[in-house]
Structure formats: structure tokens, C-alpha cells
């Protein structure tokens, strides 16, 4: 697979320093878990599973993503796409995060056309995580 240097760099960055790359999780019982939205997309049989968590905080009346964590099972470009998504999320309002399109990830990482589904998965993951966070709010 002829990946761009950007995919390779992002992949290696994640693998070599997972903590810095925001690999990890918040689990029930953690402080602030009620402010965490989780999105899991993909399937093991398809070779890609992405788990994204966003931690939100109400700042000046708007919910902003203050932190995010992920874990991804998948090919190099799926792992790079998740890492790229994380970089794009922090500090954004939910509305802004909702508007992130897979095409931005494709452009930044220069994904080959056969790997575009990895960026679609990332877009779906943020949508799921936002939905999950909003459903938590409703339960409040």
C-alpha cells in the first residue's frame, strides 16, 4: 500500500507514543464520566473498529470538546484517520465538530481512494459520540 508520508507519520506517532496521541479511554466510574460521549463504529469482520470518546464542558453557554480519546482496530490509514480526527476535535463546539467532513481528513492525510472509507468511519464516530453525549444530557 503506497501511503502518503502523512499517514505513515500519523500512524507511527500514534504507535510510538499512544498517550500523547490521545489513545485511551474513560470508563464508567471515572470522574466526569457523565460528561463523556462515546461512539463505536465499524465491525471486526470488516477489519475496522473505531472507538471515540469526547469529554465536553459547558463554556459560556456552549458545549465544547475539551478532551478526546480513542482506540482503533484497523489498517494503518484507519488508525491515522482516528488520530487526525482527534487533532481536529479539541476545543470545538459540538456544532463545529458535527460539521467536520470526512473529506477534510482525506485531504489532510492524502488518503488513497481505496482508503476513503477510513475517513468516513471517523466522521461516523464523531457523530455517534455527539449523539451519545446529547442522549446523556437528556437523561439529566
Amino acid at each position: 500500500m503506497a501511503y502518503s508520508q502523512k499517514v505513515v507519520d500519523k500512524f507511527e506517532e500514534t504507535l510510538n507514543n499512544p498517550e500523547k496521541a490521545s489513545v485511551g479511554r474513560w470508563k464508567p466510574g471515572d470522574e466526569d464520566f457523565h460528561r463523556v460521549g462515546t461512539g463505536i463504529v465499524g465491525a471486526p469482520a470488516c477489519g475496522d473498529v473505531m472507538k471515540l470518546q469526547i469529554k465536553c464542558q459547558n463554556i459560556d453557554g456552549e458545549n465544547r470538546i475539551v478532551d478526546a480519546r480513542f482506540k482503533t482496530y484497523g489498517c494503518g490509514s484507519a488508525i491515522a484517520s482516528s488520530g487526525q480526527l482527534i487533532d481536529m476535535l479539541k476545543g470545538k463546539t459540538l456544532e463545529e465538530a458535527q460539521a467536520i467532513s470526512n473529506q477534510e481528513i482525506v485531504d489532510i492525510l492524502e488518503l488513497p481512494s481505496i482508503k476513503i472509507h477510513c475517513s468516513v468511519l471517523a466522521e461516523e464516530a464523531i457523530h455517534r459520540a455527539i449523539d451519545d453525549f446529547k442522549s446523556l444530557r437528556n437523561n439529566d
Binding site: V23, R25, I40, G42, A43, P44, K51, K71, Y73, E124
Partner: peptide, 22 residues
């Protein structure tokens, strides 16, 4: 495996075959 959500679930004792994947 450290960055794999499936490994995390396996370690947590989740049966991956019983999950309805999206």
C-alpha cells in the same frame, strides 16, 4: 493491542461475537 478497542473489550471479558456491530 494497546490501541485496539477489541483487545480492550476482550480484556474486559466482553464476548465480541455477541455485540451487534454498527
Amino acid at each position: 493491542r494497546e490501541i485496539s478497542p477489541l483487545w480492550e473489550m476482550y480484556q474486559d471479558g466482553v464476548d465480541l461475537d455477541k455485540i451487534e456491530w454498527a
